[in-house]
């Protein structure tokens, strides 16, 4: 990114289709947390789908162009922040291909009639938090998480696909950030097991045992809930599990915003299929 960690006030923000609709609670709580931390998230004007798994499977070129259109909309002078791990992957992969293939870059610039910056930095929200540093987080802490025992559930995509291995490795930061805020991470569960992705729609029979296995592993280490950075994982874990008792599945941004003192949590938590409010109330985190 241009400049250093001090620069992080204005960020372009790419929500993606899930955070725009089914995971709106993640979007709202993210905005809230960012505001408290002094970040100014500017939604990418007229963004489109990142390409998605489906488009990538059916037609790689269309998927690539979809990702590139978003890049062409991003102002070059501030980093583009992404929340969904899959969107991050597709956008970064497309960006890498543009730097490898100058002729493709020129063709795409002509197609969209806009310049595309090869220096644009595409970062995940967790990276932003790490660069902000622990002091800033501690400063903002209003509700100590009170020893809330959670499994940091990353899913399969965040910082993992081989094509993205060159960058700085931010693995483990989800747990670190929430530890700073008073939570207790339990890492010995299936923290990186794939949630089933799109098979949840077409082959639910495949996904249910898988999701149950993830939840069972969390219960086995004594977790009270899972915290995930991926909206699709959150949804699959909620709708496909038949495991009892149901563990609440939080979006990372919700727990973060809660700890930072956000007050409009009713609106987020009421959208969950597994109500997390009894757990939070028992921990004296909400009234």
């Amino acid at each position: 990114m241009p400049g250093s960690g001090h620069h992080l006030t204005d960020l372009s923000y790419y929500p993606g289709c899930s955070l725009e609709s089914s995971a709106r609670e993640s979007n709202i709580s993210l905005m809230e947390a960012a505001g408290i931390l002094g970040l100014n998230l500017i939604e990418l004007e007229d963004w489109n789908c990142c390409g998605s798994s489906s488009a990538n499977i059916l037609d790689k070129e269309i998927a690539f162009s979809l990702a590139v259109r978003n890049l062409s909309l991003a102002p070059p002078d501030r980093p583009l922040m992404v929340m969904c791990p899959r969107c991050l992957y597709h956008l970064r992969e497309a960006h890498q291909r543009l730097s490898r293939e100058p002729e493709t870059l020129r063709a795409q610039e002509r197609r969209w009639g806009r310049p595309i910056s090869l220096d644009l930095s595409i970062i995940h929200f967790l990276e932003v938090l790490v660069r902000l540093g622990p002091a800033r987080l501690k400063q903002g802490l209003v509700r100590n998480l009170n020893g809330l025992k959670f499994v940091p559930y990353y899913g399969c995509t965040l910082f993992r696909p081989p094509a993205l291995r060159q960058g700085t490795y931010y693995q483990g930061e989800l747990g670190n950030v929430l530890t700073m805020l008073g939570g207790v991470p339990l890492n010995k569960a299936l923290t990186h097991r794939c949630c089933g992705s799109f098979l949840s729609a077409a082959r639910a029979d495949v996904v249910t045992p898988l999701v149950n296995e993830i939840l069972a592993s969390a219960v086995a280490v004594g977790a009270e809930c899972l915290v995930t950075s991926c909206a699709m994982c959150q949804l699959n874990l909620e709708i496909r599990s038949t495991w009892e008792p149901r563990l609440p599945i939080f979006h990372f941004s919700e727990i973060l915003a809660l700890a930072l003192g956000a007050e409009d949590y009713e609106g987020w938590f009421s959208r969950h299929l597994v109500d997390p409010r009894p757990l939070l109330a028992a921990r004296n985190l909400i009234a």
């Binding site: 289709c17 725009e20 609709s21 089914s22 489109n48 789908c49 998605s52 798994s53 489906s54 488009a55 499977i57 059916l58 037609d59 269309i62 979809l66 799109f198 098979l199 729609a201 077409a202 082959r203």
Partner: peptide, 23 residues
């Protein structure tokens, strides 16, 4: 796995129509 392919087709259809995935 025709069901899986059908699902992908519908996602792409939605993207073509709206530019975004409409669940």
């Amino acid at each position: 796995e025709t069901n899986i392919l059908d699902f992908h087709r519908e996602v792409l259809h939605s993207i073509k129509q709206y530019g975004r995935a409409h669940k």
